[in-house]
Computed example of a mutant assay.
Amino acid sequence: MKKVLILVLILIVGAFIGYKYIYQSHRDIQTEKAEFTIDATSLAKEFSENPDAASKKYLNKTIIVKGELTEIEENSLMLNNATYGTFDTNHSVSESDLNSRYTIKGRCIGYDELLEVVKLDQTSIIK
């Protein structure tokens, strides 16, 4: 009887931990303090030269990236053709802002080796 009770207790604790892991609260990147501030070209260069070290340093971290606006899409933008940021909602950047200096904040989600760009999500404009 004791073994069954211990087994049930272990299952309940395991289920609770699993539930908390799966349904953890989402991060609010806009209110988080950035761990790094870097130029878009320098960030992409770090990833291209040493992807493992750059991943350990930046992956899943909130970072601020500065650069020249080189591409605009409905819910994303590109700085220096090196850092691509996606927004949860549409941004207010227009075509007339191309080639302007921008500062964005987001969570680094990785490096696209094919396109040679660093990707950020949950991006916001600081400018």
Rank of each mutant, 00 (worst) to 15 (best):
A54F: 00
I10Q: 09
D121K: 00
S100W: 09
L77V: 01
E71Q: 08
L9G: 02
T89E: 09
G18A: 14
K66S: 10
D97H: 00
H26S: 07
T83D: 01
L115C: 06
E95Q: 08
I17S: 09
E49R: 15
H91C: 01
A34I: 03
G18R: 09
R101D: 07
N50R: 09
G85R: 00
L77Y: 01
K66N: 07
Q122Y: 14
I72W: 04
I125H: 04
I63R: 02
L11Y: 07
S25I: 12
I29K: 15
K127W: 10
E71M: 05
Q30V: 11
S76E: 09
M78I: 13
L7A: 11
E68S: 13
Y58F: 03
S25W: 14
I22H: 12
L77D: 00
K45G: 10
E46H: 05
T89Y: 07
Q24A: 13
Q24R: 15
K105D: 00
V93L: 03
E32F: 10
Q30G: 10
V118G: 00
K105Y: 02
N99H: 12
L120T: 01
L98S: 04
Y84K: 03
K61M: 00
C108F: 02
V118P: 00
D52Y: 11
Y23Q: 09
I12C: 12
I64F: 10
T41D: 08
A53M: 13
N50H: 08
I72H: 04
S25T: 14
G14R: 14
M78Q: 07
A82W: 02
T31W: 06
K61C: 00
S124N: 11
L98Q: 05
S48P: 03
E71A: 06
H26D: 12
V8F: 15
G14H: 07
T123Y: 03
Y84F: 12
T70R: 12
E116Y: 10
A54C: 03
I10E: 06
T62Y: 01
G67S: 06
V117P: 08
I64M: 06
E71Y: 15
A53T: 15
S100E: 04
N60S: 04
D112R: 11
S76I: 14
R101T: 11
D121R: 00
K105L: 02
N80F: 00
R27A: 13
A44W: 02
D121Q: 06
A34G: 09
Y102F: 09
T103F: 05
E46G: 04
F16K: 11
A44V: 06
K45I: 15
E49P: 12
A34L: 02
G110F: 01
I12S: 11
I72P: 02
E74S: 06
S55C: 10
I126Y: 05
H91Y: 04
E73L: 15
N50S: 03
Q122P: 14
G14E: 05
E49S: 13
E32Y: 05
T89A: 10
L77F: 02
V4F: 08
E68Y: 09
A53Y: 14
D88V: 10
